[in-house]
Amino acid sequence: MSETARSLLNSAGLLAATLGLASGLIWLERRLLALWQDRYGPNRVGPFGLLQVLADMIKIFFKEDWIPPFADRPVFVMAPAVIIISVLMSFAVVPAAPGIGVVDLNVGLLFFLAMSSMGAYSVVLAGWASNNKYSLLGGLRSAAQMLSYEVFMGLSLMGVVVLAGSFNLREIVLAQRRIWFVVPQFLGFVVFLIAGLAETHRLPFDLPEADSELIAGFHSEYSGMKFGMFFVGEYLGVILISALISVLFLGGWMGPLLPPLAWFLVKTLFFICLFILFRAALPRPRFDQLMGFGWKAMLPLSLLNLMATAAVVLWIGGPR
């Protein structure tokens, strides 16, 4: 198989898999939430309600795609595309298993951080372009949240980089042959998990949309497929963060018995379910409390983690 064909196949496969998984998550989340909330969830369409996804997709495709007359049209249309594109781009650097992955960038981790910052623009632009006060508040919250959580999201990963001595995600996985980084980098793991939650706007960090306060926040004015793109974008984000956690902290595809890809998927799925459990279990903090928590607790913690890791590595004498 030629190199080009292989990478084409890889890209197409990954695209199909992530989008398929993202839409599957609609069903999974609703069923899991229902399970935890003592009810049934969608169980009528197809076996176990699995075809609910299909029904939802048909519905959303045929909904009126309404652009409010007071909105800033070009930006309004562009905003949902930005989130999908930036998240899908990030998947390019995720090594699912040996030989599976779109590209091996030696700055893979930085590329992911850059792309996730891009995603923030989507929400801010959507909030601004909607020309609606609730959307604006959502957009503002999102901007502030992103700004503060991006900072230590990056910092929390630096411990991993120091240990692995590389920004290349594949090399980071291989560096965990002896021990998964979740053990030496437990603090970094926790901080990244929280930052990841914030990054994907999942409860308890769903302040930009906060339905009981801001109706639907930044996407109040969106309907039809544009709303659908935000929706899918959020799920893609959840998958991305879960995949990255397994790559960075849980040894990616490595594990006994099962084939590498299966290990990767199992680990990712575990974190996806954990994200959904958070949503079922926790209330939402207030905006200023969230910011305070970010700057006063998370940032010092991640700095501490970075310095301690660096000191230990220097003491022992370099990576590996």
Binding site: W36, R39, A210, R279, A280, P283, R284
Partner: peptide, 16 residues
Amino acid sequence: FAQDVGALSPVFYMFT
């Protein structure tokens, strides 16, 4: 009330 402060699940238990 729990839902107003963002907790999704309690309302289902209490309605039960």
